[in-house]
């Protein structure tokens, strides 16, 4: 799987081993990572996992006597944003009356074409420009390494998430605005590891006893650095036609439910996610994870995407003084 190929983590609840094998092969071919519910209750998995893209259930009852139709209904009640697909035993069966609302679709295990259509329609329904994906990864890794001394940063392949669950203990949000899209970049992480990094003097902050405000500060600084570079390269606000941009005046509320660690940007489109692992090169401090989510919730027109060529024309490197 390439570093710029989109993936997604999905839940699988399947009682038939043949069907499960076929699904696994389908997942491999379609860049999906299956998370099997063998160890615990399906609903517990939803409560314990963030970053899920979809759920694959089956009509047949499991050993606990729970059938997929009822399970799908419960999943829809707690995570209505997640598309749930159900495998029907009979190729001619459709969802029973009253259940259509809870499922994104039903499929038969031997009809891969239909299953692929469902996944593409409900999960991989947007195509993100490859230069954008590569640029986000590179710029973000560089920014983390600028803000924190002597670290290595690795990034997993990008993936799509629909569950709108907040990871970690703090997050930053900054708007992304251009003529081809509008939305947000969100960085999510945990506090304790960053406090250790600050105490060790690996950031620009000078304190032996960092507080949560110091951690906030580092996340804010990194967010600003990434945003500035992304903005210059990919999110250019093109006002060359001189027309007033009414689209840029349109907003929808962002809603955060603290109790449920849930954030909604008013759209049910998947979030484009990147997971970075930050490693201290001295080995003295624990690794930590930063989740970066890009939310395109307004004015989405990827056909207008344009990468700035400014860098190749610009003779002044970052960090150097350009005199006017």
């Amino acid at each position: 799987m390439g570093q710029d190929e989109l993936t997604s983590k999905v839940l699988i609840h399947e009682v038939d081993s043949d069907a499960e094998s076929k699904l696994k092969a389908f997942f491999t071919e379609n860049n999906l990572t299956g998370l099997k519910d063998s160890q615990m209750n399906v609903l517990d998995i939803f409560n314990r996992n963030t970053d899920l893209g979809a759920a694959f259930l089956c009509e047949t009852q499991d050993s606990n006597g729970i059938g997929g139709l009822e399970l799908g209904k419960k999943i829809h009640q707690i995570r209505p944003e997640i598309p749930v697909f159900i495998r029907m035993n009979n190729p001619d069966s459709n969802l029973p009356d009253g259940y259509e609302h809870y499922f994104a679709g039903s499929y038969h295990i031997d009809d891969e074409v239909h299953l692929k259509e469902l996944v593409n329609k409900h999960l991989f329904n947007e195509h993100y420009p490859i230069p954008l994906i590569r640029g986000i990864q590179q710029i973000s890794q560089d920014s983390f390494q600028t803000a924190i001394d002597n670290i290595s940063v690795t990034v997993d392949p990008p993936y799509l998430v629909k569950d709108q669950i907040i990871y970690g203990e703090l997050f930053s949000l900054i708007p992304l605005e251009s003529n081809w899209c509008r939305g947000f970049m969100m960085l999510q992480t945990t506090e304790a590891e960053i406090k250790q990094i600050i105490s060790a003097g690996k950031t620009g902050l000078i304190t032996n006893v960092p507080t949560f405000r110091d951690v906030n500060h580092i996340l804010s600084e990194v967010t600003n650095m990434i945003w500035g570079s992304l903005k210059s390269k990919f999110f250019i606000e093109d006002d060359s036609d001189g027309k007033e941009d009414y689209a840029s005046k349109i907003h929808v509320p962002t809603l955060v439910n603290h109790q449920h660690r849930f954030i909604s940007f008013g759209s049910n489109e998947p979030h484009l996610c990147f997971r970075y692992t930050v490693k201290d090169n001295t080995g003295e401090h624990p690794d930590f994870t930063i989740y970066q989510k890009i939310i395109f919730n307004l004015s989405w027109q990827p056909e207008l995407f344009k990468e700035s060529t400014q860098e190749t024309d610009d003779m002044v490197s970052a960090g150097e003084l350009e005199f006017f």
Partner: peptide, 18 residues
């Protein structure tokens, strides 16, 4: 404005100008 520096700050590269 007399000059422009794109972050991150590279002190060694700009100290002469400053």
């Amino acid at each position: 404005v007399k000059g422009w520096i794109v972050k991150p700050f590279n002190g060694d590269a700009v100290v002469g100008g400053i």
